[in-house]
Each structure stands twice: as C-alpha cells, then as structure tokens.
C-alpha cells in the first residue's frame, strides 16, 4: 500500500485516496466544434504505460482535493506529486 504525500495534508495511507485516471487530459472548451473522432479521442483514449505515468489522484477521505502524481507503474514508485494547475515536472516526460 502506497504512502502518498498529499500536497495539502502531508503523508497519508493509500486507503485514504482514490486514483482518477490519466492526468492532463483537458476537457475541450468547445465540444460542439469537434468531430465524432476528435470527441472520442478525448472521451475514450487513455494511455496504459508500463513505466512512468502521469495520473490524477484525490484525497477522498481527507481534504478531498485533486492533485497530480507521476508514478512508475512497473514498481509503483511515486516520483513526483504536484497540485492541479501546476506544470508537470519536465524531467519525466
């Protein structure tokens, strides 16, 4: 079970958190302008990386804040955590 450093509360057990899928998928500002394919790209297409992955997490049983996590899915190492709206650390790109 991970120990996750919530950017608002500090280190907590994984059981307090929920994972929310891939990070940095921005909801299109003008969905009506998009073709079916473009909308489907936003709606359905997600990466499933073995290795370094950018993810969204939420501190459900805590401050209820969403934040981003960089995690290596091959060994579950959490490489970085940063708040919503902050730029992802470039060195893991």
């Amino acid at each position: 079970m991970f120990l996750i450093h919530c950017p608002y509360c500090g280190e907590r057990e994984q059981s307090e958190f929920k994972a929310g899928g891939e990070a940095h998928i921005v909801r299109p500002k003008q969905p009506t302008e998009l073709s079916d394919d473009q909308w489907a790209e936003y709606l359905f297409m997600r990466k499933n990386i073995k290795g370094v992955q950018f993810e969204r997490w939420v501190h459900t049983h805590g401050c209820r804040k969403w934040f981003n996590m960089v995690r290596d899915t091959s060994n579950d190492e959490i490489k970085a955590i940063y708040k919503m709206g902050e730029k992802p650390p470039t060195k893991y790109k």
């Binding site: 929310g20 969204r56 939420v58 969403w66 919503m84 709206g85």
Partner: peptide
C-alpha cells in the same frame, strides 16, 4: 468536486 477543481477552477 472533480469538475470544479480540475476543469472549472
């Protein structure tokens, strides 16, 4: 909460 915090802050 998700939409408020992440899409429409």
């Amino acid at each position: 909460e998700d939409y408020l915090q992440t899409e429409w802050p």
